[in-house]
Design a protein around this nucleic acid. Structure first.
Lengths: 227, 227
DNA sequence: GCCTCAATCAAACGATTGTTTTATACGGTC
DNA sequence: GACCGTATAAAACAATCGTTTGATTGAGGC
């Protein structure tokens, strides 16, 4: 399947320009990094699947680490852009959902639709995000912060404003909890299928989003602990 | 620090028996696997930090993969045992928290206290769990299922019974969301510190537990979507 | 004292790692 | 048509990988 996919890439996208070489590297690296981790795949496998020469990675990106960084920032950018676009559309009004739920959906939807559906493989970028989230080395934390901090901060502030009855510190905790469910869900670990013997399906983005917004909305609104 | 730790191990634990060699391998491997992933550390680094010969891993465990499996099952066992002990203690009664909150705390507390505090390094096992949760290869999923499925299923059933007004499928979704927050929190990704510029501290197990139970309790009780 | 077996050791196995180097091919500019 | 810089190619770099081998050790049974 890998080679037929590659041939399809070649057919659909014109001549072999340098930009195409870069795209093919990024695409193959995203798939493989997501599937087996950064340390788990070699440059030879990446370049072979991309159909380019081994030296192309160091030629265009400088190193394996820089490849990961370029790959991640490029894939994250559409998500944050769409998030901020949806955030600007959030507004109180008759017939609209409560502000909090609007914000939650605006924050989560791009991560789900652009991370789960787009690209050749569904959960590719979602799982890659989850991998970086678990990593403790400075490089990976810096990449994540660089890609997501600005837009994420904007949502945290908006949610704090939408919940005046909940102290800011409490909202921060709950925001952290939300990140956990989001990343775990887009990573599609399959754990719940294993626990429920497969009676559970999580593929439908709209259903997952609706259920997640309902769940998180209730959690955010819970009365704070009186400590 | 690594070497002084090693010397402390040696001082506190008597002669060098085979069991001590195994323990030192498991301890060093847990630290390094958690910090940099299974593919990210070599057996030479593990055995060096453990102060044992390189061949000891294959001698006692057979392979690197079997080492991970043995390591994970050994560390997971106290968590599931404590979970089931606390589950048996859950009971409705005057002056006690609602059943759901009792169940949530019984499920979460062992993962937090035995995963965050115990051992030489706090977040060691928590981060290792998170790594396995993100992995897509069959081996890792099998290890996770083997270690946690039985006790986790028992809690899912108990929560379904505690929430008769919520359909089972909805509880399964929310259980999945709970796993996400739990794993993300015990992995201590540091993302929320990064977003809030460090005004956030997550080290205190009791505080994190209380806030998480409050948050999840509200989420589990939310009225299901009427689709 | 000798034998035995588990335990540890150094050394080497072939394979693979990321990166660099050297060479070859190609397209546009003078 | 010679020249130039970009892009691709093949080959080699030293380093490290998981695993296996064969030798050496030392304590317990006879």
């Amino acid at each position: 399947m890998g080679s037929s996919l590659l041939e399809a890439d070649r057919r659909n996208s014109g001549p072999d320009t340098p930009a195409r070489t870069i795209d093919r590297i990024l695409s193959a690296a995203a798939r493989l990094f997501a599937a087996r981790g950064m340390a788990g795949v070699g440059l030879r496998e990446i370049t072979a699947e991309a159909g380019v020469n081994l030296a192309a990675v160091n030629y265009y990106f400088g190193s394996k680490e820089k490849l990961l960084e370029a790959l991640f920032l490029r894939r994250a950018q559409p998500i944050t852009a769409e998030r901020l676009r949806l955030l600007a559309l959030c507004a109180e009004g008759p017939g609209r959902p409560p502000m909090l739920e609007q914000l939650l959906e605006a924050f989560l939807r791009p991560a789900f639709s652009l991370g789960l559906e787009a690209g050749v493989d569904g959960a590719t970028f979602g799982r890659l995000r989850a991998r970086l989230a678990v990593e403790s080395e400075e490089l990976y934390r810096r990449i994540l912060a660089q890609a997501f901090n600005p837009s994420t901060r904007a949502f945290l502030e908006a949610i704090v404003r939408a919940l005046p009855e909940v102290p800011r510190a409490e909202v921060e905790w709950r925001f952290h909890f939300m990140l956990g469910t989001m990343i775990y869900t887009i990573a599609d670990s399959g754990r719940i299928q294993s626990i429920t013997d497969g009676s559970f399906r999580s593929g439908d983005v709209e259903i997952a989003l609706a259920k997640l917004v309902r769940f998180l909305g209730a959690g955010f609104r819970a009365a704070p602990l009186g400590d």
